[in-house]
Design a protein around this nucleic acid. Structure first.
Length: 548
RNA sequence: GCACCCGUAGCUCAGCUGGAUAGAGCGCUUGCUUGCGGAGCAAGAGGUCGUACGUUCGAAUCGUAUCGGGUGCACCA
């Protein structure tokens, strides 16, 4: 498209220019370009006059069924119905062919419950992974978890009190309550750490033990609850519709060893000693000064993230490695990446941090520190209620679809205000709306079974107004997916699929299909639409049900 | 204090590589039940695109300033 126009301009004016081409409102045409206005200053002539000249030239080419000039100098182009249908068969270009990428798609810490914020990040990361795969990259979903450190100490403090010398007592906790039990234990430990000096000392000691785990009781309790954590994480993540991560997961204890070595090996050229700690002067690189190894020689998260980069590289040799985190960690990662560039130059520009916004309730920010968390099971219950209220069947696919879509429809990076009723809504611009639209199309197709012949290839149909609008919209799919994969922006797909479903619903209201004289053409459109919608939902990780 | 992000309809958000009367969902008002799934469709009300300058033929979009909100800034992750 761009190429043809730029050729015309070269022939007419001898100017090289890449014209801007856009998809205008349907009443203007299938495509539009403002290139005449871009050229006006250069040529010193009126834009409309230039537009007329280009339009005449394009008309002669015979590539368009209609070429017109409108407004201040737009050139509107319309293509034939046959060309429109061919366009709808276009497959998105693969912008990352031959690339290997790694992406962290979930990293909630063991010994704590997963909450909305984890779900939000996990869904975004998993969908970005889908986009990476769609763009042709060999994609490895990985996870990284804090198996050692202070938060473990806090949980262990409460857990050891609970078992009171006998690890078997953990069996008393019913399986379905593991998540809230862990949540409760962590909250108790966290409170004691803040309020009770004696407890604080004990917790600090228990934190240290998380590395070696030499005490038999400690190890037994740790192993049991550690196991529960991963069962919970895997179950919940699957329930959210995420694809599973590679096993075994990356652990902070492993990353720690490697990272601390990197830091120590790079003193004083990259890291400097300050107050007995090893720090990186991130303030010289647009971040902030940060401690990587504390004065006791223990690695902090900065060191561990460096170690993790090494581990990922050894396992996968990725061209790109994505880490999706909340925006709070944006500047922190800027510093880590700057340090990595200096300390591990061979890995420069491999790791990229994508930051997401904050999930907020109407009542404030999600937090796991004070135990005031919204658990994901509760969230699913809310969705189920909302679906039942509409007389629907709350299947796992529909609940996951509602949640994923609610989290994915905004641009990545912005805050999400999580109004439970609003986000869980199953009408309007929502996951279930799309799923319903898909089921409806399936229902129609199911009534004719495999008996309909559709329109044979090469048989160019003449579309009526509504049919044409639908096929035109279907034809935008590949462009939208390309844009979303390049920008790693799933919301473009959400916006498009919603418009597509709306276009279909409009078509559906206006055009009788079964028994109509245009049945073949219309059935073929329904089928084409159904496939496109299913493909788009697939990229979002949302199941396209045949019935609901 | 310094840095980064955000500010578009009552609410939640698209649009931001500058272009045609600024779009959608929710909510509100009205219409569509004799047709393939009404979780739908159609129509209406609702906007100084935070504010002010600037660049441009043209600014929600770019620049500067300013106001408002959020986040980060040393041994926690």
């Amino acid at each position: 498209m761009e190429q043809r126009i730029s050729e015309s301009i070269r022939e007419l004016f001898g100017i090289e220019i890449i014209p801007q081409v856009s998809r205008p409102e349907a009443k203007f045409g299938d495509w539009a370009t403002n290139v005449a206005m871009q050229l006006a200053a250069q040529l010193g002539r009126a834009p409309r006059e230039i537009a007329e000249q280009i339009a005449a030239h394009l008309r002669e080419s015979g590539n368009y069924s209609e070429v017109s000039v409108a407004g201040p100098g737009f050139i509107n182009l319309k293509i034939s119905d046959g060309a429109l249908r061919a366009l709808a068969d276009t497959i998105p270009k693969k912008s990352r062919d031959d690339m290997t990428v790694v992406i962290e798609t979930n990293n909630p810490n063991p010994f704590k419950a997963m909450h909305i914020g984890h779900a939000f990040n996990a869904i975004i990361a998993d969908t970005i992974a889908n986009l990476l795969e769609t763009s042709g990259a060999r994609t490895h979903r990985v996870s990284y978890h804090g198996d050692v450190g202070l938060h473990v100490g806090k949980s262990m403090w409460a857990l050891l009190r609970y078992v009171d010398g006998d690890a078997e007592r953990l069996r008393d906790v019913p399986e379905g309550e593991h998540n809230s039990f862990m949540s409760q234990m962590y909250a108790e430990g966290a409170r004691a750490y803040k309020e009770d000096e004696t407890a604080k000392t004990g917790i600090d000691e228990l934190s240290k033990q998380s590395f070696a785990r030499e005490d038999a009781l400690y190890a037994a309790v740790y192993d049991t609850v550690f196991g529960w954590s991963f069962e919970q994480i895997d179950t919940i993540v699957a329930r959210l519709g995420n694809k599973p991560t590679d096993k075994p997961p990356f652990l902070e204890s492993e990353a720690d060893v490697r990272g601390v070595k990197v830091v120590k090996d790079n003193v004083p050229n990259v890291f400097q000693e300050s107050d007995g700690a090893l720090i990186f002067r991130g303030s010289e690189y647009g971040a902030f000064d940060n401690v990587f190894v504390n004065r006791n020689g223990q690695g902090l998260y900065g060191a561990r993230d460096l170690g993790l980069m090494l581990l990922k590289n050894e396992k996968y040799h990725p061209d790109k490695s994505y880490i999706v985190t909340a925006e709070e960690q944006k500047d922190y990662f800027k510093g880590v990446l700057a340090a990595a560039r200096l300390a591990m130059p061979e890995l420069t520009d491999v790791t990229v941090n994508i930051s997401t916004g904050t999930v907020k309730l109407t009542t404030g920010k999600m937090s796991s520190r004070d135990g005031d968390v919204i658990e994901i099971a509760w969230l699913f219950d809310q969705v189920a209620e909302a679906i039942k209220a509409r007389g629907g069947e709350p299947t796992e696919d529909v609940m996951a679809g509602a949640l994923r879509y609610a989290f994915l429809k905004q641009r990545v990076g912005g805050d999400v205000v999580f109004d439970v009723n609003e986000s869980v809504s199953i009408q309007g611009n929502s996951g279930p709306y799309l799923q319903y639209a898909h089921a409806r199309a399936c229902s129609i197709l199911g009534k004719v079974g495999d008996n309909f012949l559709g329109v044979a290839r090469g048989d160019i149909p003449q579309y009526d107004e509504h049919e044409r609008s639908l096929i035109r919209k279907i034809g935008e799919y590949s462009e939208v997916v390309e844009r979303a994969t390049i920008e790693l922006a799933p919301h473009h797909i959400c916006t498009y699929l919603f418009e597509l479903a709306q276009e279909f619903n409009r078509f559906y209201e206006q055009c009788p299909i079964l028994g109509d004289g245009r049945q073949r053409v219309r059935l073929s459109l329904v089928d084409h639409y159904r496939r496109t919608l299913a493909a788009g939902l697939g990229v979002l990780g949302i199941v396209a049900p045949e019935k609901m």
